[in-house]
């Protein structure tokens, strides 16, 4: 398990940052080549998942919670493409219908993490030495605290639910992003165009909002894409530990949790939702990397 911080790119690495940015930018502009197969495949996966999340009925018209006790634990077949679970529910239908909740948790957690990270990172990068020290110290402490532990604590206190997962994973992954934002802000605020804007007498808040923030945050969009995948994996991990959303939700982590009793007797209950999580996480990562390459180094 990695923290979002460890997925950071060289672009945030201290003094070498601006130079790397420029190099990357050149590379990015130079490579206006057609999208790779991996990117296309990722788009296809995400397209399918997006449809599943928005209109699951199009892909799987059945009821994901309808039990059929006489059909329990059927292996994959023509009738049940991906088999059935211990209550005879069709696994394909459940995986399709579970996309919405899993994606919502991934997006929600990442959005929350980003919001916290931008606030803290910008305050830290622009707020002066004392603020920087305080926030930096707090982030160090937060970093030392494993995300899972924090999440378990929150679940114990608040009870398991989607919202708890969003909050837990969101707060847990914010420190990594916050450090990256701070690094970006520090790098960007010394850029000539920012200095120029300040020299022209633009008010400070305008400089921050129009020049520093967009340029500092842009590379983060790519990282956030990676983060969505990571958040889904984390939320699934929590659900797997029984700390996730309530049954009979087909959220993917919950499916994994429910299937673990059958890991030796009905493999499809673990393999199918596991593959769904992996596929989305890999697709998001691939797209994130592509996006990163294209976005980085296009200052406004």
């Amino acid at each position: 398990m990695t923290t979002p911080g460890s997925t950071t790119t060289p672009s945030t690495a201290g003094p070498a940052g601006p130079a790397t940015l420029t190099d990357r930018a050149r590379a990015g502009f130079a490579s206006a080549r057609p999208p790779r197969l991996a990117t296309l495949l990722s788009l296809a996966v995400l397209g399918f998942v997006a449809v599943a999340a928005l209109a699951p009925g199009l892909l799987a018209p059945g009821d994901p919670t309808a039990i059929r006790l006489d059909q329990a634990l059927q292996s994959p077949s023509a009738t049940h493409l991906l088999g059935t679970d211990q209550s005879g529910r069709d696994l394909y239908t459940r995986v399709v219908h579970g996309a919405r909740e899993s994606l919502t948790i991934g997006l929600g957690a990442t959005a929350l993490a980003m919001a916290l990270a931008v606030t803290l990172g910008v305050a830290s990068g622009l707020g002066g030495r004392v603020t920087d020290r305080v926030i930096g110290g707090a982030l160090e402490v937060a970093f030392a605290f494993p995300v899972m532990l924090l999440a378990l604590l929150l679940v114990a206190v608040r009870g398991p639910s989607s919202a708890t997962l969003v909050i837990a994973v969101g707060i847990g992954s914010a420190p990594g992003y916050a450090r990256m934002v701070r690094g970006q802000v520090l790098a960007v605020r010394r850029e000539p165009y920012v200095e120029a804007a300040a020299a022209l007498g633009h008010p400070r808040h305008r400089v921050v909002l129009q020049h520093v923030l967009p340029n500092a945050v842009r590379p983060l969009l790519a990282i956030a894409t990676l983060g969505v995948g990571q958040s889904i994996v984390w939320a699934s991990g929590l659900a797997f530990l029984g700390m996730g959303v309530a049954p009979p939700s087909p959220e993917w982590g919950a499916l994994l949790e429910a299937g673990r009793m059958y890991v030796t007797t009905a493999w499809w209950l673990e393999v199918v939702p596991g593959l769904a999580i992996v596929a989305v996480a890999v697709a998001l990562t691939t797209l994130g990397r592509t996006l990163q390459q294209r976005l980085e180094g296009a200052p406004s």
Binding site: T65, I67, S87, P247, P248, A258, R260, M261
Partner: peptide, 19 residues
């Protein structure tokens, strides 16, 4: 969950919920 009701017990509850 997991303390009073086991994994199989949770399945019982889901079955009843649907019934």
């Amino acid at each position: 969950a997991g303390s009073i009701i086991t994994a199989e017990g949770t399945t019982v509850l889901q079955n009843i919920q649907d019934q």
